[in-house]
Simulated scan of single mutants.
Amino acid sequence: MSDNNDTAGSHEPREDGGSRRVVGTPSSVGERTLLAKDDDEGYPAPAGAGEELDEKSAKNAERVVAAFFLLAFAASVAFIAYYIGWSGRNGGMHGVTRTRESNLWLGGTMALAMLALAVGVTIWVRRLMTSKPIIQERHEMASSAETRAAFEADVLAGGEDSGITKRPLLRRTLLLAAAPLGLAPLVLLRDLGPLPEKRLRHTFWGEAVKKAKAEGKKGVRLVVDGTNAPLKVSDFNSPGGMITVLPEGIEETHEAANEIAKAVTILINVPAEQFKPVKGRENWHVNGVVAYSKICTHVGCPAALYEQTTHHILCPCHQSTFDATDGAKVVFGPAHRPLPQLPLGVEDGYLIATDDFPEPIGPSFWERG
């Protein structure tokens, strides 16, 4: 048995005249390397268009790439046109009823523009750029004038190989496709506004109360969200309960979805012995039944969870917690002000709202509009 452990491996003779490898010795790899060499041309060029282009095929590929760039341009223009034009009708894209439509069209046109641009660039690289091997020599960090001149020559040669200098159709359509995409972020700045101004200072509760008082009533009746059934005091006399209510008649208004989003209110029955009315609001509850805006004052999520043992209202988005027994003041979390309280009363046995919320509903920064 041979003791030779070189890279060719150790072998022992076989009876048939051949040899077999001894266990524990490296295999025979010879002169193989990860990249095969060609004695005449060095390392082969990577897969792609090759070192030389077939001009006829290149022209066809050029037209295909230009078509994709034009498609990207058209999709980008459609994105901007929809954003400025169609989305501005009937209240714009900021309304609840238009959100799904605007997301579909804006997302679809932007995705098409990005996809067409990516496909065009990919075909350009694979079909129109030569695949010559590039060898980089390492020298000292300080570059000589000859090196800089060589670099400049390489850049110019690269531009020539890419075809961007000799194929003006590709260059122009690429710039055409990229121009609207550069403007898109500027157009999207519109989504930072407009400010709600004074639209959140009042809700449909105020309008409904004014209409009811004009008819000789004390206020507008509370109806259960989902059933629109008026709510009697006797229907909600169990401490610890919470339901969502709305002003009567809100579903018949124009842009009802937007009005409901602002007017949605939670009704809670707090035990009388634990209830602590806020000064100046002693008559805003009915035997411990109190109403607060359901919109969290942090970022506007629905404060829809209620802990009966602690009488805490919880917003599940960022865990802002409000004390229902003490004017919904903040006891934990990032919210900075209590949930607005709705003044309540009773008329003919029904729970009614006697006025609108006294302060803007929703996140604190909205009230600055």
Rank of each mutant, 00 (worst) to 15 (best):
E55F: 03
L128D: 02
R126K: 14
G95W: 08
K59H: 11
A111N: 12
K56E: 12
E51I: 11
W124N: 03
K132T: 09
G85K: 09
L70G: 01
P44S: 02
T109V: 09
E101I: 02
G108H: 07
T99S: 04
M129I: 12
G108R: 05
M110N: 12
A36S: 09
M110T: 13
S76M: 02
T122Y: 12
T97Q: 13
K37G: 08
A47C: 01
N103P: 00
V125E: 05
A58W: 03
A75D: 05
I84R: 05
R127V: 04
K132S: 06
L70V: 13
G108M: 11
F73R: 03
S76E: 05
G42P: 00
G92D: 04
S131N: 07
L71V: 10
Y83F: 15
G48F: 09
M93H: 09
M93P: 06
G95I: 14
N90S: 14
P133G: 05
A78R: 07
V96D: 15
K37T: 14
H94F: 13
I80R: 07
A118N: 14
Y43Q: 03
E55D: 07
V96E: 14
M114A: 15
S102I: 00
I123C: 03
R98S: 04
T130D: 03
K132F: 00
V77H: 03
L70A: 10
A67V: 05
F69A: 09
G88R: 04
H94I: 10
A58Q: 08
L71H: 03
N60A: 10
L117E: 08
S76H: 01
R63L: 15
G88S: 06
A66F: 02
T130E: 07
T99P: 01
F69P: 04
S57Q: 12
D40G: 12
L71K: 05
P133Y: 01
L71G: 12
S76D: 02
V121M: 15
E52L: 13
I80H: 03
K37L: 13
S131I: 08
Y83M: 13
N60M: 10
R89C: 05
L117G: 07
F68C: 07
I84D: 02
G107S: 07
A78S: 15
E51W: 02
A78L: 15
L112Y: 01
V119D: 13
L112T: 10
W124M: 02
D54P: 01
T122V: 12
D40F: 15
R98Y: 01
D39G: 04
L53Q: 08
S87C: 06
L112A: 09
A72H: 04
G95N: 13
M93V: 06
L112H: 04
A67T: 05
A58R: 08
G50I: 11
A113W: 06
A116N: 07
E41D: 14
A58N: 06
K59A: 11
V119C: 15
T99K: 08
L104R: 10
W86A: 15
A75P: 05
K132M: 06
A36M: 06
T97A: 14
P44G: 01
L104T: 12
M114T: 14
F68M: 10
V125W: 13
